[in-house]
Computed example of a mutant assay.
Amino acid sequence: MTNTNLQRQQLRKQSQVVFPGFHSPSPAEEFRAIAAWCEANNVEHDVYGEGELLSGFEQKIATLLGKPAAVFMPSGVMAQLIAVQMWAEQSALPRFGLHPTSHLIGHEEQAYQALLKLHGVPVGNRLTPMLAADLDAIKQDLACLLVELPIRCAGGQLPSWEQLQALKDKARERDIALHMDGARLWESRAFYGKTYAEIADGFDSVYVSMYKGIGGIAGAVLLGDEKFIANARIWQRRMGGTLVHQSPMVASAAMHFDARLAQMDACLQRAQALAEGLQALPGIRVNPAIPQTNMMHIYFDAHHDKVMAARDKIAEEEKHWVVGTVQAAEVPGWSTTELYVGDNLLALSNAQVLPYFKRLIDDSRSINL
């Protein structure tokens, strides 16, 4: 019998050990922690984006990324739509480039087209990061080029440092503004061994998430020069993003921020060690073979419904939650899942983890649905 989504959520909640991600406190636990942090730091509410907590956090992110100015927004969708809209306005060209698997294409209901009447041009191969040669192959003029670091849909892959610099040079050569989709920029520094400012150097605007990787309730930060951010604040109001109080989102992000960044090196090392162990198991493959961030895509030589049934069985019997959602892969009969390595796996060795993946693939082959 196949479990419903609600039953699966309950199984995950009841699991004593969860492999994917960072520890996730309950709403009550999180709100108590935020309240204590606010009291310890004498936090006052902002009012429509004006306030010491908000301005101080914006400045902290701007300094970290080496950009003159920053603005906090309630969502990354809003931040990136505003960025591409402003670059299109500035160049008087309603066309921009983006990776074929960009969030703007796959997860936002074509908002840039429906709301802003912009034309998105896919650049590069969906299975690999965007390269200078990919931009060279696009003969149309572009208002801006949206570069995702890392490519989530390709298992968290990044271009090499040399490839990234070549892409920056090519965009400058063609006078195309560069915008970074840095939803997972925080996870990228460990691979490059550079500062966040060095990675962001050459990008005219940058978006970073305050919940992906960081663990805030919600929110995003958009960065650029002073004129760009002043204009972004106008667009934020136009889009209904200047909420009366943004302090709950900012406080939750600020509370977690430094500790999460400090864990990223260890998370990458743990992901690489786990990937090596997983690839020794028959019926399992990992992309990329050596993770470049603390995430990877795991492929199973089994139908996705059977893998999820096996996962549910392990959760019921062992109280271990091994993986999240499993989907059909493009190769018939194979399935895939994304595994994000956070502090949950930092506390567990391969000897403690790999037997559950072996059981997952073994059970999935014996289950009849």
Rank of each mutant, 00 (worst) to 15 (best):
R184L: 11
R184W: 11
R184V: 04
L185I: 06
L185T: 04
W186R: 05
W186Q: 08
W186F: 14
W186L: 15
E187D: 14
S188G: 10
R189L: 15
A190M: 06
F191W: 10
Y192E: 12
Y192S: 11
G193V: 04
K194R: 14
K194L: 13
K194T: 08
K194V: 10
K194Q: 15
Y196A: 09
Y196N: 08
Y196F: 12
Y196E: 07
Y196I: 07
E198D: 15
E198P: 07
E198C: 12
I199N: 06
I199T: 08
A200K: 09
A200G: 06
A200F: 09
D201Y: 06
D201G: 09
D201T: 13
G202Q: 09
F203E: 10
F203H: 07
F203G: 11
D204V: 12
S205W: 07
S205K: 08
V206E: 05
Y207V: 07
Y207K: 07
Y207R: 10
Y207E: 09
V208D: 03
V208E: 00
V208K: 00
V208H: 01
M210Q: 05
M210G: 01
Y211W: 11
K212D: 13
G213L: 02
G213D: 03
G213S: 02
G213V: 02
G215K: 01
G215R: 01
G215M: 02
G215V: 04
G215Y: 00
G216D: 05
I217V: 06
A218L: 09
A218S: 13
G219V: 04
G219W: 03
A220R: 00
A220C: 03
A220K: 00
V221Q: 03
V221W: 02
V221D: 03
L222Y: 06
L222E: 11
G224Q: 05
G224P: 05
D225W: 08
D225F: 05
D225P: 08
D225E: 12
E226D: 15
E226P: 04
E226M: 10
E226T: 14
E226S: 13
K227E: 14
K227A: 14
F228P: 01
I229F: 02
A230R: 11
A230P: 07
N231Q: 15
A232L: 02
A232H: 00
A232K: 01
A232M: 00
I234N: 12
I234S: 10
I234L: 14
W235V: 11
W235F: 13
W235R: 15
W235I: 11
W235H: 15
Q236W: 01
Q236D: 04
R237Y: 05
R237I: 07
R237A: 15
R237H: 11
R238G: 12
R238L: 13
R238H: 12
G240E: 12
G240F: 12
G240V: 11
G241Q: 02
G241C: 03
G241S: 02
G241E: 02
L243C: 03
V244F: 14
V244G: 05
H245C: 14
H245N: 11
H245Q: 13
H245R: 10
H245I: 08
Q246D: 13
Q246N: 12
Q246V: 07
Q246F: 07
Q246I: 06
S247R: 01
S247G: 00
S247H: 01
S247M: 02
P248R: 07
